[in-house]
């Protein structure tokens, strides 16, 4: 069991036990054991990030519950995406980035030497801001991750491709055209293909970095529907600039803020989404949500 309550260094957390929304067991078919329910939960303790000498995030502590949607909101440059990239160690790819504090996934430290970032990324998938399908067919795009994991059997791959495309709500549109080049899809379809591609490795968590910001309203709607459909089976952490989107799709919301360029960003408040958008504890959260800045 991972405790939802965190005791950390100087990172103070102010949310009650009620704020952690565990998915109701009856919401899922064939509910697995209680332990399985907790797969895909993150605990962050006093996390800080620095690009070279520039400290961009400091003292972030939070609990990201499993099988729920957690939204990270805040003005541009408040470190939401940077924090997101800590969760699958994609910051490692950038070089010259130092991450401090502790991050655990289901109780296991993900920042230590014991955790191979390549293995971590199979458990924690990511969907990027701009759709980035690989220049190959739809089928090959989805089978890409499983193949990396060593799955070679055609029938098994076929099954995974179908399952993942269904999970991303794209199956009905492409089932007769799996050999089509991914670039022939529309932007919204490409993004759902990227979600399917991330699902194919059977991750416990999917990170989404403004997945709908490059899409039209109808495609955005489809992505949001997909997220709603997915959250029973996978933990979703989403960065978004769109407050209505956060309010619509997330169970929990975390508000981050960089008060000035001289100081690093920090977590202002994190709570149930309903509470954050109706009755936030912090005055800054309220002014951001009501559109007074940011």
């Amino acid at each position: 069991m991972v405790s939802p309550l965190l005791v950390t260094g100087d990172g103070t957390l102010s949310y009650g036990a009620g704020s952690v929304t565990l998915p109701r067991a009856d919401a899922r078919e064939g509910a697995a054991s209680k332990a399985a329910d907790l797969q895909g939960s993150f605990s962050l303790a006093d996390v800080s990030v620095a690009y070279g000498r520039d400290r961009v995030i400091e003292g972030v502590s939070m609990y990201i519950p499993p099988r729920a949607v957690t939204a990270l909101i805040g003005p541009s440059g408040c470190g939401k995406s940077t924090l997101l990239r800590c969760l699958n160690r994609m910051n490692d790819e950038l070089g010259n980035v130092h991450v401090g504090g502790t991050i655990t996934l289901d109780g296991a430290d993900i920042m230590g030497r014991a955790m191979d970032p390549v293995e971590l990324r199979m458990r924690v998938g990511q969907v990027f801001q701009r759709p980035n399908p690989f220049p190959m067919t739809i089928w090959d795009n989805v089978a890409y991750g499983p193949r990396t994991q060593g799955i070679r059997k055609r029938s098994e791959l076929d099954e995974l491709v179908e399952e993942s495309l269904k999970g991303a709500a794209l199956w009905a549109e492409v089932k007769n055209n799996l050999k089509k080049h991914a670039f022939e899809l529309s932007g919204g379809q490409q993004q759902r293909l990227c979600i399917a591609r991330a699902l194919a490795t059977k991750p416990e968590v999917i990170l989404m970095d403004e997945p709908a910001s490059a899409l039209d309203p109808i495609s955005t709607q489809q992505i949001e529907d997909t997220i709603a459909q997915l959250k029973d089976s996978v933990t979703i952490v989403i960065v978004t600039h769109n407050m209505q989107q956060a309010a619509r799709i997330s169970d929990q919301t975390a508000f981050m803020l960089r008060e000035s360029l001289d100081e690093p960003a920090h977590l202002v408040e994190m709570d149930e989404t309903r509470k954050m958008f109706t009755n936030p504890d912090d005055a800054r959260t309220e002014s951001y949500i009501t559109g007074r800045f940011g």
């Binding site: 699958n88 390549v118 990324r121 199979m122 998938g125 980035n132 220049p135 991750g145 990396t148």
Partner: peptide, 15 residues
């Protein structure tokens, strides 16, 4: 080749 493709591949657990 767009950097996003490399990132996408890395995010799927590729070396």
């Amino acid at each position: 080749v767009p950097e996003e493709l490399r990132q996408g591949s890395a995010a799927l657990g590729n070396t």
